[in-house]
Design a protein around this nucleic acid. Sequence first.
DNA 1: GCCGTTTTCGGCCCGACTGTTTTCAGTCG
Length: 600
Amino acid sequence: MLAVRQRAVKQSSCQQRGWLQPGVIMSKLLTNRDLAAIFTLIANLLEIKGEVVFKTLAYRKAAENLEQMGQEARALWSAGQLRELPGIGKALADKIDELLRTGRLRFLDELKQAVPVTLVELLQVPDVGPKKVRLFWQTAQVTTLAELEAAARGGRLAGLAGMGPKSEAKILAGLEALKRRPSKLLLGDALPLADELLAMLRALPGVAAAAAGGSVRRMRALVGDVDLLVAAEDAAPVLAAFTSYGGVAHVLAQGGTKASVEFHTGLRAQLWVHPPARFGTALQYATGSKDHNVRLREIARTKKLSLSEHALTRANGKELLCASEEEVYAALGLAFIAPELREDQGEVQAAQNGSLPLLLERAQLRADLHAHTNWSDGKDSVLELAQAAQARGIKILAITDHSRSLAIANGLSVERLRAQAAEVAAAQHKLGSSIKLLHGTELEINADGTLDYPDEVLAGLDIVVASLHMGLKQPRAEVTARLLGAINNPHVDMIGHPTGRRLPDREPADLDMEAVLSAAAATGTALEINANPARLDLDGSHVRRALALGAYVAINTDAHKAHDLDLMPYGVGTARRGWCEAAQVVNTWTEKELLKWLSH
DNA sequence: GCCGTTTTCGGCCCGACTGTTTTCAGTCG
């Protein structure tokens, strides 16, 4: 539902990586994200050039698949298996081959000669697409955002074909919006806003149901905007309440069935209103992803049906209404597909042949195995945090404060670690058997690869979560070796936030993930899905690959205060995006099973 | 560009909203 924003995001990652500069592309081994950024750039340039739309779609689809793949394209390339990837034919396989061999792509170099690469910046402006960019470029000599602004202010756009005074004003407004709008929004910010808006909408008279759609409902870590859907017979009053809600700065569009608004924060939301009898098709449509919806509509066509947000329609025009999403999928001969899976990554085929996973549910989690107290950089005492966990129904809580080298977080010396053990025991005594406390550490993997406590100290702890906080920018071989060293230490039970990424801006460490995931599977070391919305690390695609390789995962909040214990749903959503079932999640295990694994 | 129980050539989803238009193109999701 967010084509434009995703395009902008990928562009900025292109710019950071220097693909917009002429000359050699490569300064390090090209990752899937690099390849995806290059293909997205090519798609944008081809679109501006006026190439047939299906060719640009092929590049976009390939970029999307590369980004969502849990495995490095480089590995498949080495094995000569690139063509086995969906959406990669001969032409794209050859281009990936040239990129991985030489670090360059002649096709892209030539394309940049024909189309000024700065033009892709203009696509970020709302209501400016490839056709307008080409128009501005070829008839008004505009190639940059600054030139676009100058042309609009000088009144030189209104006279162009298909343009007028309103369009010109819209461009200026769009340029202003671009300056103040956050380019990427954390799920952790978007979901609470969605919930607030939904509560307001549900309280309106005539509203039968309200739900979030889009990437928020699919639990993507980064979203572009908030999509909402309401079931009501009369749309007008609902749309009016939405567009006049407090905090709304501009109404971007408003029609009979939908409206979109921008808040003072720059954040955008849109609302569709459909009759309750059509809520199923409407919610399915609004949830996306776009590619998933395209797949469904293709299936509908094979059944002589046309699928839209309004209904499934037969060739004779007769409508089949669906009040629930379940009815939509059933009508297409598919098992119900959970929103988190709707990314066109094989879920439709799995729904056809009955091989969808039995996804992990929030209620199956019993443990939170990574949390901090005021012994290091947390806010609450051991007892306070444990009581908060108990109140939330958590059966097992691991206290894992930082180890000694992380001085900035008041990491514990060996002496303080031993003293803390006594406090954990005292809290356990006070709380009784309704919650089990584990005493552990979040063990620093030092920049030189050593672990922060000696083995004999680690042997005395209930649980060891090893994490990277320093040296995240080391070269791939070095940083990967550090992580592998920790995974292979018999006292290390789990790797915390494995890639070290911080959303929206800090890049993950340049890890050989296939090696990391394989080693974790081989040693029975769990890989964390850190539930903090600024991490969500591992991400869904790596979770899926880790599970396929036979690794265990853990879902933890990394709480630094009691309130953080409520972040678990973000981790669950990320796990579900990775097609995760309960059995491989250590937090779902009974105390006996968990302790057996920890003592292994 | 990709892809094949309609096809190795000719397909490749469906609709709302806006602004410019007297019937449609562009953008967006």
